[in-house]
Write a protein that binds this DNA or RNA. Structure first.
Lengths: 208, 208
DNA sequence: CCGCTAACTTATCGGGGTTAAGCTAGCGGA
DNA sequence: TCCGCTAGCTTAACCCCGATAAGTTAGCGG
């Protein structure tokens, strides 16, 4: 099954064009099949109208390709969360909006989410600089928001990094479980999420 | 690299012996390598002193084998959690102990945990009966504990199933993130976990 | 001693990631 | 105009994988 017509060779100096076309083909396959396993080097090459070894002219190996695809998608992540929190005055409501957006984004891009946040980075992926980690700017914004809420006295004072890490773990927990175990008899997703966000924020509020 | 000496054929009527030996070999490989990808049918067969097709006399396919291995390990799960909660009088402290034990078990069996709770069940694994899901008895015990704490007035009244699901998501969140993203600059694990359990329980307590 | 069958093995298929080596279009220069 | 060089690919191959069809062998019942 040859997917695309054979691609014409790029002109001199435009070899990088193929890189983008490979990523686009991989992205399309990843979304269409929703299964990392179905996104093979051969299938990607076929969809891009190219032979498999061509891919290695632009990516060291398959994991690097998939990482590039997922990270590209997750560059929208921070923007998406900021958008959701924008215009929400109450800092606690902003945190809630951010959490809801996080889960929504994960469920709308389940395979990207799975690859980035639910698989162990093999020994191949070297230790990356902290601020290079995908989603790190989004996390920084979360820490800032938590700190703001603490300063405003809406959350009890404490370590903003610790609290933000806990909130991240919480929204990741529900996101990843919904992705990994769709067969579980989940309560209504919004009801569960609102419950969890309510519990988390109530647990963080200063004692009355 | 031939791993084990060639295994002697089982005697008549004892064919089931091989099933256990295959699972033992797979379990050993899974723990030693810590990588599902390294646990190939061929490697398992080699370690068991058998040829690859023999495995298919006892398991329909590879996922069934790995599922059997992981579920066997997780039969200890419920016992492990109950043990941790036993003898703790305060129901809230019992919940805490249960949560801590959950995370500990996951981190002690990361690859088992990953396979069972961090991968999408493919279309191959059919919808299982609810009470056949691995870890389901452990979850039932959690629901009961939550209901008891509500009855005792230690948690505000509500839907025990919803609350238990939220607690599960919370401990799963920290467990799975610690497994999937060891490169993140985590706070001390115990500190983070205690913080999260504290927040969750405080958020569930009846208003003072 | 024969035959049946449980408990395997041999041989093979199609597909995967990856690499070494070859080909070719087209630009720079003479 | 033609040559050579090299960017941008392809051809061919290797070794691994999961899985299956068909064959073999050991040992018990008669």
């Amino acid at each position: 099954m040859t997917g695309a017509t054979k691609r014409a060779r790029a002109r001199r100096g435009e070899g990088e064009l193929l890189r983008a076309e490979i990523m686009a083909a991989a992205e399309k396959l990843l979304i269409k099949t929703g299964d990392e396993g179905a996104v093979s080097i051969r299938a990607i090459a076929d969809a891009a109208g190219v032979t498999p070894p061509s891919i290695y002219l632009h990516f060291a190996d398959k994991t690097e390709l998939l990482a590039a695809v997922c990270e590209a998608r997750f560059q929208d992540f921070d923007r998406y969360l900021e958008e959701a929190a924008r215009g929400v005055d109450d800092p606690l409501e902003a945190l809630r909006a951010r959490g809801r957006a996080y889960v929504r984004f994960g469920l709308e891009n389940p395979e990207h989410y799975r690859i980035l946040f639910m698989t162990r980075p093999g020994a191949e992926r070297p230790q990356r600089e902290l601020d290079q980690l995908p989603g790190m700017t989004a996390f920084s914004h979360l820490v800032e928001d938590v700190a703001r809420a603490m300063d405003a006295g809406l959350l009890s004072a404490g370590d903003p990094f610790l609290v933000a890490t806990g909130l991240w773990s919480t929204v990741h927990g529900i996101t990843s479980l919904l992705i990994a175990r769709p067969d579980f008899p989940w309560p209504d997703h919004d009801r569960l999420l609102d419950h969890m966000l309510g519990v988390a924020i109530r647990g963080l509020e200063p004692p009355a």
